[in-house]
Simulated scan of single mutants.
Amino acid sequence: MNYRRTGRMAALAVAMTFTLAGPVQADSGLLAINAAVAPEVPVSMLPAPSVDTPAAAPSMELNVEPIAGGMASYYGRHLAGARTASGQRFDPDALTCAHRTLPFGTQLQVTNPANGESVVVTVNDRGPFHGNRVIDLSDAAAEEIGILGKGSGKVQLAVLSD
């Protein structure tokens, strides 16, 4: 039997049973815990769960910062598997895009004002480098907002961040 592992599991069980009253310290691979017994609350004193009040969802607020929009186009499927500027392989079915200046990994909300459809894409390439276009979308992203059949379309852009 591995006593080191047993010691850690026992410490974990103690930590789960007691409220920590002091710091948890690592000591020779074993945990030393200063703990005090948590006060017990009688069940009769706990509030009854409400059936008609839904549980509050965790807050998932994102900052949405509009940036300059314009014309969007999309990559053709013939580029599938080609390396993007970030080093990733282009996947026409992924929700990705090319932008001239935004950092790789930036999440963008792309909205087609003609139909109100939006999609969130990740910048993983540079471009477009021709015409008056501001963004190149993957095929999947272009389809989501309804510009796949036209080849290009006007879009509004917003950067999403935590």
Results as ranks from 00 to 15, higher is better:
A140Q: 02
V41P: 08
Q25R: 07
V64N: 04
P23D: 12
A142T: 05
V155D: 02
K150S: 05
V159Q: 09
Q25F: 11
E40M: 07
L160Q: 01
P58D: 12
A38P: 15
N2P: 15
E65H: 13
S86Y: 02
A55W: 00
G116Q: 06
K150D: 04
A82K: 14
N63Q: 13
A94R: 09
G105L: 02
P23A: 15
T101L: 02
A36S: 13
A38M: 12
D91W: 07
L62F: 13
I135T: 05
T111I: 12
P49S: 13
S28A: 07
M71I: 11
L20R: 00
P128K: 07
A11C: 06
L31R: 14
V121C: 04
I33L: 13
A114E: 15
M71A: 10
V134S: 02
G81E: 08
V121S: 03
P42G: 10
G146T: 09
M60I: 13
A158C: 12
I67Q: 10
E143I: 05
A142H: 01
P54E: 11
P54L: 04
A142S: 05
T17K: 07
A48H: 09
L30P: 03
A11E: 01
V14A: 14
G151N: 08
R83C: 05
L31C: 08
L157H: 02
V123A: 09
D162G: 09
A82L: 07
M9Q: 08
Y3M: 09
A72N: 05
E65M: 13
A13P: 00
L12I: 11
A11F: 07
M60W: 06
A35C: 15
R89H: 11
V121W: 00
G76A: 05
M16E: 12
I33W: 04
L79G: 05
S86T: 08
I145M: 02
E61N: 14
Y75Q: 02
S161I: 14
P128T: 10
T53S: 10
S161A: 09
V41M: 06
A15S: 07
M60C: 04
S50N: 08
C97P: 00
I33C: 14
S59E: 04
G153Q: 01
S161G: 06
P113G: 03
Q107G: 00
A56L: 08
E144C: 14
D91S: 04
S59I: 14
R4S: 12
S50H: 11
D125Q: 00
V119D: 01
V120E: 03
G149D: 14
G81C: 05
S118R: 07
N115V: 14
G7P: 04
P103H: 08
E143R: 10
E61L: 13
P23E: 11
R126K: 15
P47Q: 03
Q25T: 09
D139S: 12
A98L: 02
L62T: 11
A94F: 01
R4H: 10
T122K: 15
S28G: 10
T111K: 06
M45S: 09
A57V: 13
P66L: 12
T19I: 08
A85V: 01
L46E: 05
N115M: 11
Y74E: 01
P47F: 02
P54C: 03
Q88V: 03
N112G: 11
Q107Y: 05
N132G: 13
S50L: 13
G76W: 02
L148G: 02
N34F: 04
N112Y: 14
N115P: 11
